[in-house]
Simulated assay, not measured.
Amino acid sequence: MGPSPAEIVRTLVAGRLPGLVHLAHRPGPYHVRHATDPEGRVLMLVPVVSDLAAELDPGAGDDVAVVLDVLDLPPAPGAPSLGRAWISGWAAPLRGADARRGAADFAAVDPTGDLLDVGTRFRLHRFEVVEARLEGADSVRRVDPAEYAAAEPDPLHAIEPELLADLTDHHADQVAGYLRRRLGLADGGTDTAPRVVRIDRYGLVVSYGRPGARRRARLAFPHPVADHAELARLLHPMLCPHAGAGERSR
């Protein structure tokens, strides 16, 4: 089992990756700093003196149709991409208490000091997602907005590069041995050592096989993990098999 399309879209647009915003009948696209609130609504932090602010035109009184475009950045060489998320809605500026709540939601994802200047140098715009799509290598899947809103971003996505680097730099032999056992691979031979290329709350994506003929497999966790601490507990037997055997023998 892996993440659903709705979960992938929520993960990609959460605010950890760069985003582009397209405005209906306007030039662009524009780079935008964004985050999502607990309901999945998109918050855009826009300098009041900018081309994007002028195009959003908060003084016009009408909401503006926008599309947020976020491309996944694979966390390591050879890692597969999660794809590209496209979500759209009608953006409106936030003011007063709404702006303060929006700034708090934005800070939960990205605690930038620029949020202190919302209302002076910056303005927050927000839109509820009315259409969502997930673009892969050879397909585009529509995601129901209600499923998108109910999904949760993956708690490991923001730290995935560090997790993979730690497995490679400090536990390469233990990881390779564990993966060979799980995949039923011969030890050594002509195959390149299997390695973890992606981690999410549901499991590991593993690359293995001979050079030029690499394959991928998913190894599922017993249950979805809630955070880094729970992941560490699940990976402990893989990284420290002898310690685990000693504990069982007591």
Rank of each mutant, 00 (worst) to 15 (best):
G184E: 04
L56V: 06
A35H: 06
R101N: 05
A220K: 10
V206S: 07
V143C: 08
A35P: 10
A232Q: 15
G203H: 08
D117W: 05
G136P: 00
V13L: 11
V175I: 15
P27T: 08
S207W: 01
L45H: 00
T36V: 15
P58I: 03
P145Q: 06
P194I: 09
V118G: 00
A97K: 13
H242E: 15
D37R: 08
H223Q: 12
D63M: 06
G184H: 06
F127E: 06
G59Y: 07
D166F: 04
L94I: 01
P241I: 04
G59D: 10
D98Y: 02
V140W: 05
A14Q: 15
G246N: 09
W86F: 12
A107V: 02
G61H: 09
A229K: 12
L20H: 08
A150W: 02
G244Q: 11
D51V: 08
R100E: 14
V140D: 06
A54I: 08
G136N: 01
P75G: 11
W90L: 14
P3G: 10
H125S: 09
P38V: 12
A149K: 05
P145M: 05
R126K: 03
E135V: 13
D37N: 15
A243T: 14
P3H: 09
H228G: 01
R182T: 08
A146L: 12
P27N: 04
R195G: 13
R16L: 12
G102R: 03
I8Q: 01
G113H: 05
A151V: 07
Y202H: 15
C240G: 02
M44N: 02
Y30D: 07
A99Q: 03
D200F: 07
D117T: 12
R214P: 03
H236Q: 15
G83S: 05
I199H: 09
A229Y: 08
V129L: 02
T36K: 10
V46H: 00
L235P: 05
A165W: 10
L163I: 11
L43G: 07
L71V: 14
V130I: 07
A6K: 04
G59P: 01
R100I: 06
H157W: 14
R100L: 13
W86V: 06
V42E: 06
R250Y: 07
E160Y: 04
V130P: 00
P3K: 11
A151W: 02
A65P: 09
R142D: 15
A35Q: 08
A193W: 11
R84G: 03
V70S: 09
R141M: 04
L12D: 03
H223Y: 11
L20V: 02
I199W: 08
Y202Q: 14
P3S: 14
P58L: 03
V206P: 07
V21W: 01
A172W: 07
D173K: 02
L124Q: 03
V42L: 14
H22L: 12
D191I: 05
I87A: 01
P194C: 08
G59W: 11
P153D: 13
F221R: 09
T192P: 03
V49C: 01
D37S: 11
